[in-house]
Design a protein around this nucleic acid. Structure first.
Length: 417
RNA sequence: GCGGCUGUAGCUCAGCUGGUAGUAGCGCCAGAUUGUGAUUCUGGAAGUCAUGGGUUCAAAUCCCAUCAGCCGCCCCA
């Protein structure tokens, strides 16, 4: 019988790497708090219709990547492939529009997509995301972008690249799409095989083609930014002005395309060099029409992003290759049964003081110190019959090898010094 | 979903044109007497050579399939 292994595209996050995950998450929570974002937890699975309607029937995610299964009553359920649709569902369901001001939520958790795994791409992956709902003000767009940039910086990574674009709204985008398709009728046949396919299935993708020979042709295609309506043009200009005012560097990428149908107006993406082909650490954008497409009578304009936590952790580990080894403050080495019983209270004292304490399970002192050393313990506390009799304990500094005899009351102060 | 590369001890790997696996490094365990580690010395355990078939007198080594990982495509976080 073969041992069971984690299924393809899933993995275990073990120490010491799990410490990096915690670091990234606590940085994000702290930054979000200062922008008045608060946590929302939505279910891991939802009715399939939420995603088909929210994310879009024709997207790759809905078309071929969802984990969908029938419930026992045959309702079609789906493991969430992203979380914005769920957050919007909750917003509508709980009438959160009734709360005054801009509603700001963040989430951290696993998402599921059945793709071919490779570096930085998993079937169960984690996203740290935030959504600001209830305003279409460009101030919110700029603030959301500023906030996520702050999360990246405070996580410890540098050299990331912010790209922004506007993809228009329901008024100007259809006209642009029609124009693009018109131009592609002539242009596409001269382009690569992928582009010929994209020209039919997903014309915007043509703009993102990386084949060098196609670039001159792409340059002749119309840019979305030249075909925005007045409102969208003004909105985008304002987003940029706010980013400029905050000194946040970005690149305007008229050809940047996002894969989810609900995006409109502002879209953005941040890439990082250490990630390989899946170099996007985060993506986001505005989704002013999403609420309506989920059946809401009340409009709920919003903007959000999601960070690929797996990729952010990779970048952070790349920036700090040294191991995040767990710290043991005191390794309690006991000699004999009496000492074992006696040491429990000592350990409790130290833990009460906030120190991390590990107890020896070996009979021999030599072995205990060996283990303490391998764990990287700062101190060893030796307790044997002599110590119990004298009521003083031997505290050994593992790096200097100096040891001193201390009473129970002196221990904490000495260790914390 | 498509294409390419890879898969030998816990980890990193050696193993030439097939002859039945390594004094390898790190790690792990034990010992060098009685209560002292990180340096030293000695010894030890551990591998269905990813899995399943096939060719052969003989396969880790050749062939096929499957699985997994990596790289690229598609797409995305």
């Amino acid at each position: 019988m073969n041992p069971i292994k984690a299924v393809k595209g899933t993995r275990d996050i073990l120490p010491p790497s799990s410490a990096v995950w915690n670091h990234v998450e606590s940085v994000a929570r702290e930054v979000f708090r200062t922008y008045n974002y608060h946590e929302i937890r939505t279910p891991i699975f939802e009715e399939t219709a939420l995603f088909t309607r929210g994310v879009g029937e024709d997207t790759d995610i809905v078309g071929k990547e969802m984990y969908t299964f029938p419930d026992r009553d045959n309702t079609s359920l789906t493991l969430r492939p992203e979380n914005t649709a769920s957050v919007m569902r909750a917003y509508i369901e709980h009438r959160l529009d009734q709360i005054p001001g801009v509603k700001k939520y963040y989430y951290i958790g696993p998402m599921f997509r059945r793709e071919r795994p490779q570096k930085g791409r998993f079937r169960q992956f984690y996203q740290i995301g935030a959504e600001a709902i209830g305003s279409d003000s460009p101030i919110v767009d700029a603030e959301v972008i500023e906030m996520v940039v702050e999360v990246l910086k405070r996580s410890g990574i540098e050299k990331f690249h912010l790209m922004i674009n506007s993809v228009g709204d329901h008024k100007c985008r259809p006209a642009y799409m029609a124009l693009l398709k018109e131009k592609l009728k002539d242009a596409a046949p001269k382009m690569c095989a992928d582009c010929q396919r994209r020209a039919v299935t997903n014309p915007l993708r043509v703009l993102d083609c990386k084949v060098p020979e196609d670039q001159p042709i792409i340059d002749t295609l119309p840019s979305i930014l030249d075909h925005l309506c007045e409102e969208c043009t003004a909105h985008f200009a304002s987003v940029r002005a706010h980013l400029d005012a905050r000194g946040i560097p970005y690149e305007v990428r008229p050809r940047m395309v996002r894969g989810l149908d609900y995006y409109m107006r502002t879209t953005f993406e941040i890439t990082h060099g250490s990630l390989g082909a899946q170099n996007s650490v985060l993506g986001g954008g505005r989704y002013d029409g999403l609420a309506e497409s989920l059946g809401s009578k009340v409009p709920a304009p919003g903007i959000g992003f999601s960070i690929g936590e797996d990729r952010l952790v990779m970048s952070v580990e790349d920036a700090y290759p040294e191991k995040h080894k767990p710290v043991v403050d005191v390794f309690l080495a006991t000699l004999g049964d009496a000492a074992d019983l006696h040491a429990g209270a000592l350990a409790a004292d130290l833990r009460e003081a906030g120190l991390s304490v590990e107890r020896s399970v070996d009979k021999k002192l030599k072995r205990a110190l060996e283990v303490a050393n391998k764990m990287g313990a700062r101190f060893a506390l030796i307790v044997g019959d002599n110590e119990i009799a004298n009521q003083t304990y031997l505290l050994k500094d593992m790096s200097s090898t100096v040891q001193e005899s201390l009473t129970r009351d002196q221990l904490v102060a000495r260790i914390k010094k």
